[in-house]
Design a protein around this nucleic acid. Structure first.
Lengths: 193, 193
DNA sequence: CATTTCGCATACCTTGGGTATGCGAACCAT
DNA sequence: ATGGTTCGCATACCCAAGGTATGCGAAATG
């Protein structure tokens, strides 16, 4: 048990974040009652407001954490390959796989845009997974594998496509089919050798 | 002025729908107060609950209406062309153009999935714009313009891509760039002649 | 040991979605 | 036309839940 005050504070904060993440993922933002999150952790609403300035504030912190995890997973999958094109494919497949995680699905893909507003959500997205995608595409353009073109709109298109595909898979769509369709889309971008 | 009861009922319902649509589009679902919607129309909350069983019920009706409008717009744009491939392109461009409409953006793309739940939203989407896309792709496959493949996952990918692109454009992204990127993606699907 | 800090609890306020019930005008019977 | 019925909507109320103001007690400080 932490006797020290800083440790205690950090522990409470971590516990609230973890419990919030569980509940936001399982029940969706609106179904979650802040007081219940606090109670489950053994504190009261007051503690939650001491650490986060609102329910949305807790959610925001959870979103950042989940985004971070997702970005790490995608980056790790990509880095297992040397070839740039393979990296893109591996990253995309990792993203689709992550879509089966309820935390990613409900928190990032369903609730975050409405709760935080699309602008703020996009900013967070930009800092993690979306950035990896844009960088990968830029590298492929530089390497002459895909045609010279503005990278940002293409990255948004692909990002949106994968978000939707992840939700589709989670709802029962066949992942193989989704991966194959995505592969075909990506393959169409390659400059014919 | 309607003296007849059925007309009166219909008029109130229409007014609530119109005002709800305005406010949902302008402020987002959560910011909208049902009582204020009713008041703006000259009735009270009771009337709203008489016509729709909940706030979400009113929103659902608005969503259906906006979906319908959007589907019509896309279909109309497509039907101005005879060539199947041109139809697809025209429909997609019409969809991106529609993304500049705040009603489409906020109601359909941002709030609907969370408020109605992703499953119900997808069902509504399926009945309007998404169906057009799937049909167009199926026709192109049948005509041998794009490779034989499951149409549903491809339609979801493209649908997600365009949703995201519409939001990106609304946030200030260049529409020409988005259209060109989308064209390149679609072009990659064609079987090389 | 006196004092301050601060992490959190307690008590309270307010907003807003939802419900139960009542009224009055349009509708329908004879 | 007139009494009873329907029904569109108003009024009054309930309560869950987010947010706030304040107090307490234990750790930190010196």
């Amino acid at each position: 048990m932490a006797v020290n005050r800083a440790e205690q504070r950090a522990a409470t904060r971590r516990a609230l974040l973890a419990e919030g993440r569980r509940r936001f993922a399982a029940d969706g933002y609106h179904q979650v009652v802040l007081a219940e999150v606090a109670q489950a952790v053994g504190v009261t609403k007051g503690a939650a407001y001491h650490h986060f300035d609102s329910k949305a504030g807790l959610f925001r912190a959870v979103v950042a954490q989940v985004q971070q995890d997702l970005g790490d997973r995608v980056a790790a999958a990509a880095e297992r390959h040397d070839d740039l094109w393979e990296q893109l494919g591996a990253g995309c497949r990792a993203f689709l796989a992550a879509g089966t995680d309820p935390a990613v699905r409900q928190i990032l893909l369903v609730d975050a845009p409405t709760v935080l507003g699309w602008d703020e959500w996009r900013t967070l997205d930009e800092e993690s997974s979306a950035r990896h995608l844009a960088e990968a595409l830029a590298a492929l353009v530089a390497a002459g594998v895909i045609a010279e073109q503005p990278v940002e709109p293409l990255a948004r298109l692909l990002s949106g496509a994968m978000n939707e595909a992840a939700l589709w898979i989670a709802r029962g769509g066949d992942r193989q089919d989704a991966e194959r369709a995505l592969d075909r889309l990506l393959a169409g971008l390659r400059i014919p050798a």
